[in-house]
Amino acid sequence: MRYLVCIKQTPDTAELPKISPEEAASGKLSVNLVVNPWDEHAIEAGLQLMENYGGTTGAVTVGEEGAIDALRSALAMGCKDATLVKHDDEIDAWGVAELLAAAVRHDGDVDVVLTGQMTVDGNSGAVPVALARKLGWPVLTGVAKVVELTDDSITVERVVGQARLTVKAPTPVVVSVIKEIGEPRYPTFINIRKAARVKIPELTAEELGVDVPAPVVHMSNFRKPPARDAHVKLFEGTPQEAAAALIDALLEEKVL
């Protein structure tokens, strides 16, 4: 079996509030970049599949040269190989999906492609479905658990809205996971050392033989959201007094 995890390098979530509109517009960020947190769960899922069903798990990212660091983190967690699809120009979700689809085909016989639920920078959540459509494969989103993987099918538990569904689909398949799939494991010392030395192969759109579609989503007028009216009104007295005054205030606000 072959599993390929799609990961993206994104800002450390603690630093997201520091990003300025100018940085966001240019894409040149001064914040610390890490593996997109949802994708750490996808890596964990890939490693669990490797342990439970055999085979190898690789990681792939579409990004600039610096995204190699994210791939090293995936190797340090236990992925067996990693590939950078180098792309510096403006690209939207469909472009990312096009490149990832080409990378998956280039990889050979992939059984399961794993992704996170969304990126903490782009927040679109559209890449997993788009990638599956480009490959012509089924896609399972919101996956909390892999129940069974066979030579030609996968059975998973999906969380969709308020329901939990057990769904079976043929492989090859794209699986987008949620946090419940498992907590990302810590890298081992040995893997960190190994990951630091590995030469990570790079591919370009040209080498993959794809034309990256021009972006069809256009963003402008980058700005900070209006600040919250930050003057908190505190209620004092005994818990009973404070509670009564608070409920009165909420009734006045018409939110109760």
Binding site: I19, A24, R223
Partner: peptide, 14 residues
């Protein structure tokens, strides 16, 4: 919102 709601943008699509 992008960057998890920390930046707002106008968006149009083709």
């Amino acid at each position: 919102g992008i960057y998890s709601g920390n930046i707002l943008v106008d968006v149009t699509v083709d």
